[in-house]
Amino acid sequence: MKFESKYDPEDIESLLLHKQFNELYPEEKEFVLRHLENEQEYESMRSVLMELKNISTTDEWLEPDASIKKNLMREFSSEKKSRFVIWLNSLFAFPDRPWYSQRGVQIAFGVFILGFLLFRYAGDNQPSSQFAENVKPANENRVDSTSSESAAALAEKPAVDTTNKNLAIPKAPQVFAALAPTKDNAEPTVAVNSESRAKMSEIESSDEVVLDNVREEVTYAAPTSADSKSDLSSAEVFSNTNSNTNPSSTSFSSTSVNQLKETAFYTTQAASPISDYSDLMNSLFTAR
């Protein structure tokens, strides 16, 4: 049996700690003397080792400062928290890559594109409630107007550009429509004229301004006093055109010249082919 396989330097330590030289077995002595010079060295080493063991056990142990622990615990907590901060830093701050390849920039760009597309297509496919509200009252107004006005009045409603303030005569077409002779309301000329005058007085009371405009237009359109004869003749023509009229009831003596002019104008309008308001306007301008 070889000593090398059984004893090694650590075994010498064990021997030094537990046995004096004279307590060693012959093979142990042979092993020890292969590493040490003599018995004296063995004993010297033994005393040193024993003293070292003694010192190590009795030596004072220093206590680390409390500040070390405090600093470390603070560092530990900050290290754990800083992982998120590091992630944020990787987004924008302290970039080690080009700005466009930063994660945050790419995410922000993607969100912007998505938001833009959503806004764009949502706006195109679905009408907004604001548009719906704007359209609805217009339709309602049109329905109301059709229900309130007669079909005849709608038929006579002119398509005139009223942007010209001087030509704005909103209620004139209604007057024409009311005076237009139909099968049902065919009456003698005098009756029609009295009715028209009644309507005129009603209109005068309700809308003086409009009436003034009408009168002004009528003044331009009506024949002058020099042509009063022809006016009368036209009135007569009108009375003759109505077969149901009674000539005896016709009386011009009680009407003023202006009234006659108005009457002639309206009756002419009723009988003449000028049924459209635009034609009327054209004729008025022509007369001017």
Binding site: D8, P9, E10, E13, H35, V48, L49
Partner: peptide, 13 residues
């Protein structure tokens, strides 16, 4: 380790 320990002890001695 054993060898180092032995020679350290010898040197100290």
């Amino acid at each position: 380790v054993k060898s180092r320990l032995f020679y350290t002890l010898k040197e100290l001695n």
